[in-house]
Simulated assay, not measured.
Amino acid sequence: MTNGFDWSRVFHAYGTATDTGQVLAGPLADAREHLWSAILHQGTVWPATPEVLRIVGGRLREAPALGLAFVRDVASSVNAGDEAATLRAQVAAAPTAEWTAAYVAADEDDQVDLWDDDTGNLVLLGAALDCWDLLPELLDPVAEFLEDPDPQVRTHAWAAAARLLNHPGTASRRPELLTRLARLAAAAESVEERASLVMDLGGLGGDPAPFLADESPLVRCAAAMSPPLAEHPAAQQELLRMAATPTDFDALKGLPRFEGEPPRWTLIAVLSRRPVAPSALYEPALAALPHAFRLAPCPDLGPYLEILFPTGWPEQATAEQRGLARELAARDDLWAPTNGNRRITLRGLGLPEDRETWRALS
């Protein structure tokens, strides 16, 4: 037991959570691997997660950046929004307690068999709702770090607070924290911190428009990506400028919000949802070619292909379609026979998978 909690009655991604109590009995800084593998596994929370979230929230001072990142990631995974009551009724109607008791008492083979019953998924849903219910009480512990002397800790704190403020139970705190956030963003000396705070400001419904005039193109782009500026013409121009050299935006890769992925993927995804003419995406699509087909579906080129070829392969190609086809076909590095990412991406978009067809269009 840890703090009187019986870990043998709950489970995580790898089985009964008796090892979780042992991990949390030690320094929080040593728990990183366990937290992001067993307790929060690829974005899924488990019956052990709510109690771990409660404990981590009470121990933030031990390892602030780690603890705040964990709170942020759990909060990002359990956003129930307006559906919480409906989902709670589904869980309440199922024998989740009995299923959990059977699961933790079973051997590994029997545990696998238990997942044939849909009750297991409702157990996980119940764990997510328990985490959701905890979020409002975590705001005060997180808020203690919003003006921490360490910029990395401040960035993690605001990223966590932004997720917590999406909960209806924290709505009354939003105006005050938005005022603080705007002030801190304007005063931040580091480009990385300023960009992160500006994205948090926009994500919470604040006004990032003043930062479209920032001296840093990274901060201007961060402001332009914010939902409040989705219809702002100057914001679209900032996104297009950055998308012409997308790896420049990867300078922000250390920010926790990108979770280790290249920030340009977020930039491209946002730009592809904005009201810009398809022809305006031609240059960004060319800039994405050196990074194309490294994953499937391709986050660098795929969104542009979907817009520039909206109905699949054209009978009468536009100038942009012909130009992109020519440049795509010309790159030997994109046509290796073993590149399954290319085939999966193109097939998913209803586009031809062979080089000669692309070459013929140009």
Rank of each mutant, 00 (worst) to 15 (best):
W132G: 03
P299H: 11
W265N: 15
Q237K: 13
W313V: 05
P262C: 08
D73W: 00
A224H: 02
L328M: 14
L281D: 00
A235W: 07
S76Y: 05
D19A: 02
W158L: 03
E144N: 07
T2W: 00
L229G: 00
T245I: 09
L129R: 12
R355V: 02
H41S: 13
V78S: 03
D133H: 11
P228L: 01
G126K: 01
D354T: 14
R32G: 06
A143L: 09
D207E: 11
A243Y: 04
L181E: 02
T86W: 11
P246K: 06
L286D: 01
Q152M: 15
S196E: 06
E215I: 11
T311S: 09
P210Y: 10
L35N: 01
Q111P: 08
D19C: 02
C221L: 09
T44D: 13
T318Y: 13
A319K: 08
A317P: 13
A25H: 02
D118Y: 07
I55D: 01
L124N: 04
M1F: 08
V112Y: 14
S279A: 15
D214Y: 06
A319Q: 12
D140T: 14
R220G: 11
D354Q: 12
T338G: 07
A209T: 15
A195E: 01
T18Q: 06
L271F: 12
A182K: 12
T119E: 02
A251V: 07
L267F: 03
A185C: 05
H34G: 02
H156I: 08
L281Q: 00
E83C: 11
F5N: 05
L346P: 01
R264F: 01
A25D: 09
P64H: 01
A80Y: 11
S190C: 11
D133V: 04
C221M: 06
V276Q: 07
A162F: 04
G58I: 03
G302F: 02
R359C: 04
D109S: 11
A330K: 14
P50E: 08
V112W: 12
R194N: 10
G120Q: 04
A92C: 09
G323N: 15
G169P: 07
P175V: 08
L184F: 10
L181Q: 04
G58A: 12
G350V: 05
E215F: 13
T86R: 14
A94Y: 05
M199K: 06
P64D: 00
P149F: 03
Q237V: 13
A143V: 07
A75L: 05
G206P: 10
A105G: 07
V270A: 06
L239D: 09
L28D: 00
S190T: 09
F211L: 12
W158A: 00
E189C: 07
